[in-house]
Design a protein around this nucleic acid. Structure first.
Lengths: 251, 251
DNA sequence: TGATTTTTGTTCGTATATCGCACAAACTGT
DNA sequence: ACAGTTTGTGCGATATACGAACAAAAATCA
């Protein structure tokens, strides 16, 4: 790939889209410029381009993204077989356990939800396909990190801001690596109120026909409702069934 | 806005992302070129850019989108207050009715799902935030088209491929406009097996504090399970409650 | 209020990177 | 081996990005 095979204008435009987020839904040209580090003139051109294409709305002062942006994410969700394949399994798992079930993959140091069957809302944050959580303190993140070969998990953890969301959160790299070893040995990960108080979840890897881990599957519940022993005793066997069924159809 | 305020490289890149879809998950350079109408060299540069940024994977022959693309759609979902505001209301509505409930907005001649609380899977297609349906044969589409002023609904219908998905589908523009008038008068829309056999749904507009329609809300069910009279008699009152509650918090 | 400062948005000339074309190379299947 | 197809490359013409300077709008303060 040569130098000229990279369209920097495209890359900059994508950065501009990602500048919008929960804390920053309405942005001025200068806002985008400071967030992305682009020149004001360039940020303006990107924003006007988005606006002209219908991906953004401009009221003369602030820009907001429009629902058209969802086309982009949806291009992935509909193009990738995994979300569509796992969804019915997820629905059944969620019904059988009475809890929310999700499937996610790793992107950098975050897990990305690609499918979800929600039962009741137990979290303060609203999870849906596309949502991201830091891998180090999420059950699916632990599972996915545990399957990485060699030093990769360590490398990823070193690029992560390991902050203590609760008093239970593991934030020490060596402790986390020990826990990953533990996850590898027992074949599942439990995260007990490390992400948010009152929240417990259990995750296992989803393994394709060729033996490689393609995603992680989890069931999340409220601590007041479900004991840790019940998660392993009652949820894990059902999750194993889902895992086995999916093993045959994945990849 | 001047001519030079448009970054065509960015616009082309976005077209390339949207070239991927359910029927086209793996694309070669030439595939993308023919789908988007871009020059092969340009398509290649866009794809290599996506690949370099981690939005796509390249195996030397085919490109596939990666989960990173979800960041883009998620930028909208997390940046826009509407999905987050309506989600808990949707959850309660879904629980109260025992059916799937959704909220969508209009984008061109399609409705775009921006939030959903699924109970059981009643459709052959898997709906999630970002999913699109043609407006003319979806209950939320009818509601949203009905609120458009003047000739706009007609204009949109004229740009739509009005195909009969089932024997019940309305495909005549005049008939559809009559139905929209009907929807305006009764304040809700029912679509009975026009999108898919066995599928019924009822929708109402979501109105903001300033009186403008900001989205549509629906409940979908299976025809075998719920009679039309029950949808109006049992679901509609609960939906009206949701509508009233949301009226106070929207916009 | 009005002057002054600061911030924000827009314009412009120029250096530079991208585009599209035409051609070359690599594959594919017969 | 060969025709057909797909992918990679070089180059001139053209469009874009940069940075700074300018204009406009807020914000601050006398």
């Amino acid at each position: 790939m040569r130098e000229t095979d990279f369209i920097s204008g495209f890359a900059k435009g994508l950065r501009v889209i990602e500048a919008f987020g929960e804390a920053t839904p309405r942005l001025s040209i200068t806002d985008v410029s400071t967030i992305t580090g682009l020149e004001r003139a360039t940020a303006r051109r990107c924003l006007l381009t988005l606006s002209k294409l219908g991906y953004a709305h401009y009221d003369g002062k602030f820009f907001t993204l429009t629902s058209r942006v969802l086309r982009l994410g949806h291009a992935y969700l509909s193009a990738t077989p995994l979300p569509r394949i796992v969804q019915p399994f997820l629905d059944r798992l969620s019904e059988a356990t009475g809890e929310s079930a999700s499937v996610s993959v790793l992107d950098g140091n975050e897990v990305v939800y690609i499918a979800r069957a929600a039962q009741r809302r137990v979290m303060s944050i609203n999870l849906s396909p596309g949502s991201r959580l830091p891998a180090y303190c999420a059950s699916m993140g632990r599972v996915l990190l545990a399957t990485l070969p060699g030093q990769q998990a360590r490398n990823i953890l070193e690029t992560t801001d390991l902050k203590a969301n609760t008093q239970h959160t593991l934030t020490n790299i060596e402790e986390l690596l020990n826990e990953l070893q533990h996850v590898r040995e027992q074949g599942y990960a439990i995260v007990d109120q490390e992400l948010e108080m009152g929240l417990r979840s259990i995750a296992i890897p989803l393994i394709g026909a060729n033996g490689s881990t393609v995603a992680a599957l989890n069931v999340g519940t409220q601590a007041v409702r479900t004991e840790l022993t019940e998660m392993v005793g009652r949820y894990l066997p059902i999750m194993r069934e889902t895992q086995a069924a999916l093993r045959l159809v994945l990849l």
